[in-house]
Structure formats: structure tokens, C-alpha cells
Design a protein around this nucleic acid. Sequence first.
DNA 1: CTAAATATTATACTGAGTACAAATTTATGG
DNA 2: CCATAAATTTGTACTCAGTATAATATTTAG
Lengths: 212, 212
Amino acid sequence: MSNRDGLRERKKEATRQAISDVATELFVARGFDNVSVAEIAEAAEVSRMTVFNYFPRKEDLFFDREEESRQILKAAFAERPSGEAPLITLRRLVQRLADRAHPFAKFTDATAKFWRTVAESPALSARAREMRDELIDDLATVLAGAIKRPLADADARLAASMVVTAVTVAYAEGLREHKARRSAASTRETFLQIMERSLSGIAIMLKGTPYA
Amino acid sequence: MSNRDGLRERKKEATRQAISDVATELFVARGFDNVSVAEIAEAAEVSRMTVFNYFPRKEDLFFDREEESRQILKAAFAERPSGEAPLITLRRLVQRLADRAHPFAKFTDATAKFWRTVAESPALSARAREMRDELIDDLATVLAGAIKRPLADADARLAASMVVTAVTVAYAEGLREHKARRSAASTRETFLQIMERSLSGIAIMLKGTPYA
DNA sequence: CTAAATATTATACTGAGTACAAATTTATGG
DNA sequence: CCATAAATTTGTACTCAGTATAATATTTAG
């Protein structure tokens, strides 16, 4: 029998999902810090060790989509018209994410609750910050790759840091507007406006480099 | 006897300093994560509880100057010529820190070692990121205060995030140059140049607001 | 069916951080 | 100087995340 969809693989995926599901349920009900890994294991009818087997850190039970942002960046630069300035590619990417209401540019009660849970937990907040820094590194690498530099240079690191900061601020302001009961169109407009302002400023910072 | 400089107060300060000193020594010698609080307590001839009494978290034993950046910001805006755009105040502040080789703009073997120790410890890195976010909040508040807004608004938050990001990147590049054995003048120039480029871009982002 | 490969579990440990009460040290008022 | 109040230090016992390791159970392959 094949390795890929044998009984073993199916069971693994099932237990992983079961653990993740039960953990999410407990987290939203009682808050991340008020649920122990032992409780999750018990509720998922699995041993504590098995939980750590699938999710090395407790925070991994909450943040399941770490890989996704990396893929989005790669895809955007893979499809980009040759010769287009990397900063323009990013501008188009942001527009598209907003148009398609992608989770990274969506403001609903669900996303608000998600980030409130994060804000209420020091451990989750720390992990979110860590992921933000990892994203900066990834973006710097992708940017350098786009202009055929093997390694990220100082300009790429500046660009990446600034763009990720811009998204962070724009997203936070979008969430803020949502919580203030503004319309979806309004929050989307706020998000895009901050991104536009930021990107035009970043373009100035990168004038004379191959990135802008 | 007065409360301020009685025996009790002096002893408290002495033990606090003793704990901090012995901890720093152990950390630089063996790395933050390879030294337990119990060891520090033993080396400082004090109980484990006393260590936690003075330093609620282990990371506090390493980062002793959290308050300082806050004070520098406040002072800079307290002394600023009335009517000066806040972003100009910050530009002058950066120049002055570089001129005076303040720790936040200084690149020596000591600072390099300090930040290497941070980079080698997940816990210290996490704390550094947390402090960075706290600094952003503080700066946003100070910026809003400078134009007589009681609360930080979206523009202040954007400005603060971008400025702190700029300093972070500029400082990191300065450290990088130092590690590559470039001259002190060169690292200083790199730092200032990144700050200048960044601030001119940030000025564009803030055009039409009272901050730029 | 057997044996190798892999997943799960039990157990025991380290280390940070907390709660709380007991013991010690310093301050203060007579 | 003494007694007592106030503050500091300590001991003890706990919770919880995370790691190491060996034993056990389950799936796969021959």
C-alpha cells in the first residue's frame, strides 16, 4: 500500500485535526492561558506527549497558518511581469488580497475575536511578533531574489521591514474601525489608504535601488 | 530615620545590584538559557524567591534599561522648539544620539556581544520584540501629545511604527558593519544614512498630517 | 504470519513562575 | 532600651510547558 494515503497517514491526519479542533474550541471558550496542554490531551482522548508530538509548542495549536504568508509572497513574485519593480508587485498583491477579502486583509467579527484572543495572551502575542519578524526575513529574501541577488541586502531588509510594518499598522487600523462598527467598505478603504500612503513613502526610501 | 536613605533602602539597592551583577556575569559567560534562576540566587547568596522579588521575570535580569528610551523621548519633546514638526524633532534626536554615541546608536564589541547574547536566546529575543512594541506605543503617545492630542491617533501610530522600524533596521545594519570590521565612522554613517532615507520617506507618508 | 518501521504512551525530569505563610530584619514610638 | 509594627527574606509546595527516554501498540512490507 502507498505511503501517501495508507491507514497510517489517514489516522495521523485525523488525530492531528482532532487535537487542533478541540484545542481551538477550548481556547476560544476560556482563553489560551487558561487551558493547559494536559486538558487538551484529555479532551482529545490522546496522551499529552502526542499533543507535543504534533505541535511542538502550545502556540502552534493556535497559529495553524504560518506557512501561508510565505507561499503568498512566493506566488506573487513568481507570477510577476518581468522587469516590474518589486515594490509595485507588492502593491498589486495588497490590492488583490483586499479585493478577495483574504484573511490577511479581512475585518469581521471572527478576525476581531481571533486577534482579541491573541492580545489577551502574552504567549500568543509573543508568537505573533516572532512570526512577524520571520515574515520580514522571508520577504527580504524574496525581494532580493526578485532582482537576482542571492542574499538579502540592506535595501531588501529595509524594504521588507517597512512593508511588513505598513501591513501591520494598516491591518490594526482596519480592525480598530471594525470594532468601532464602521462599514466593511470603510474598513477596507482605511486599510488600503494606509497601505498606499506607506508604499509611496517606502518608494522614496528606496529611490535609486532596484526595489522601487 | 528617613525612609529615603535608611539602612533598609541601602540594603535593598545593594542586594538588587548584587543579583543583577552576578546574573550578568553568568549570562555573558554561559548564555542566558544555560543559567537558571536558582543558580543566580545561589551565586548571589540569596534565596530564589528574592530574585523573583526584584526581577519578576528572568529576562528583567538582562534588560535593565527599559525605562531609559521612554525618558529620552519625553525629554526630546519637552525641549523642542514650539511649532517644530514632531518628525523634525525626532530627526534631531537621532542626530544627537549618534553624535554622543549613545548606546542606542553605538556600535562596539560590547554592543555586538550584547545583541549576540540576545539573538542566541529565544526568551531574550521575545522580550526585545516586546520592548520594541512598547516603545512604539510610547512614541505614538508622545507624538500625539506633541500636537496636543490627548490620545494617539492613526497617524501617530503609523509614524511611531515607522520610526521605530527605521531605527531597528538602521541599528541592525550598523551592527552588521561593525561585525564586518568596518570603521566606527563607516558604521555611524550607515546608521545615519538609513535613518535619513527612512525619515524622508516617513515624511511623505505623513504629508498633510500635523506630524510632518 | 513475521519482522521492521513508525506512532503512541508512561514516566520522570528541568526550569520558570506563583501562592502563601513563617521567619528574619529594620524602623518607630514610648 | 524595649516592644511592636512594618517590610523584607525565606521555605515549601504547587502549576505548567517542554524534553528525554524507554516501553508498548499499531501499521506496513515481505
